[in-house]
Nucleic acid binder design. Sequence first.
DNA 1: CAGGGAGGTTAGCGGTCGTTAACCTGGACG
DNA 2: CGTCCAGGTTAACGACCGCTAACCTCCCTG
Lengths: 200, 200
Amino acid sequence: MATRTDAPTRREQILKEAARLFAERGFHGVGVDEIGAAVGISGPGLYRHFAGKDAMLAELLVGISGQLLTGGKRRVAEADGGAEAVLDSLVEGHIDFALDDRPLITLHDRELDRLRDSDRKLVRQLQRQYVELWVEVVREVYPALTEPTARSAVHSVFGLLNSTPHLGRPGALPGRGVTAALLHRMARGAFAAAAGDAVL
Amino acid sequence: MATRTDAPTRREQILKEAARLFAERGFHGVGVDEIGAAVGISGPGLYRHFAGKDAMLAELLVGISGQLLTGGKRRVAEADGGAEAVLDSLVEGHIDFALDDRPLITLHDRELDRLRDSDRKLVRQLQRQYVELWVEVVREVYPALTEPTARSAVHSVFGLLNSTPHLGRPGALPGRGVTAALLHRMARGAFAAAAGDAVL
DNA sequence: CAGGGAGGTTAGCGGTCGTTAACCTGGACG
DNA sequence: CGTCCAGGTTAACGACCGCTAACCTCCCTG
C-alpha cells in the first residue's frame, strides 16, 4: 500500500470513526447522529457521502476482506525463500493488520450478518479465498496435515491473532514489536503442534 | 456440575434461545417478540420471567463467566499430577465449553458492553479471576514467561480456543473428539512457543 | 459577477422496539 | 367449591432511529 501523506477525505474520516463506534457498541448500538458528531457534522449530513448506515458497514467489511486478501496474495507472490518464509510473511502481515486496525478486526467477525445478502456473499467469498491462501501455504510447510485439519488450524490461528483487542489498550502492552513477536511465535507454534511436531 | 435429567424450566428455555439469537444477530438485532416466539409464547410474556431484555443478557454473561471460573477452580483443585496436568485440565475444560456452548462463547466477548455498569464490572471481575487462574498455572509450567507475557499468551490462547464458532457448523467437523484434540495440541504448542521452546 | 453544485443545516415522518396496562384462564389448595 | 396466583394474552404508549425534505451558504468557475 502506498504511504499516504495527504489529509484524509471526509469519507475516510467518517469510515474510520464509524469503524471505531461499531466496534465499541455494535452496529445497531450506534446512531447516525453519533457517527456524524464524531466527525463534526450532524446526523443527516452523512447522507451526502453514503447511501445509508448499511452502506458504511458494507464498505468497511468489503474493504477489510479485500485488503487482507490482496496483501496476502502479494506476500505469497513476493516472498523469497521457501514455504516457511511465505508462511512467516503471511503471519507477519496479519499481525500488522490486527495490531494497527483493531476496530476493523473486531468488525470483521462480528457484524458480518448485518449486511445485505449480496454484500455478505462478497465478503464471505473474499474471506474464503484468504483462508484458502493460507491453507495451501500451511500444507506446503506441514505436509502431514490433511486439508480439513489445515483449514481448522488456520481458523484457530486467526482466532489467536485476532485476539489483539483483548490484550489491553495499546500502551499497556510491552511494546508493539515485542507483542508482534510473541504472536508470531505462538502462531507458528500452534501450526507446528497441529501437524503433530514435538513441542515438549 | 450435577447432570440434569429433569426437563428445563421455562426460564432456562428462554435463556437458551435468547443466547442463540443474541449470538446470531447481536443484542440490539433481536426483538423481544422473536425471543418469545422461539419458546412458544409471545413478546411481553417474557416479562413474567425477566425484568427486561437487559436482565436476560446480564444473567447469561454472569452465568458464563461464573461457570468458567468455578470450573477452572475445581480443575485446579482436583487435578492430580504436576502443573502440566493442571494446564491440560484447564485447556480441556475450556475446549469442552467452547464446543458445547458456542453461542455463549460468542456472547462472552461480544456483548459485554451492552450491560449495566454494575453487571459489567461483575463479569469483568470474574473474567479477570479466570485469566489469573490460567496465568498462574502457565507460569508454573513455563517459568521463563514474565507475568505480562503470560497474560498476553493466555488471552491469545483464549482467542484460539474460542474460534470454534468459525470452524463450520457442528457436523461439517471431523468429529468432536478429533477437533478437541487438535485445539488442545495447538493451545499447548502456542504456550510452548510463547515460552521460547523449540518448535521446529 | 452570475450561477450552480458540494456539503452542510433543521424539521419531521414512519416504523420499530421495549415496556406497561388490563384482562383472561387453568389448576393447586384450604 | 371458592379463591388466588402463576403465567399467559392483546392493545397501546412513548421513545428512538434511519432517512427524506426543504432550505441555506460558501466557493469555484465561465
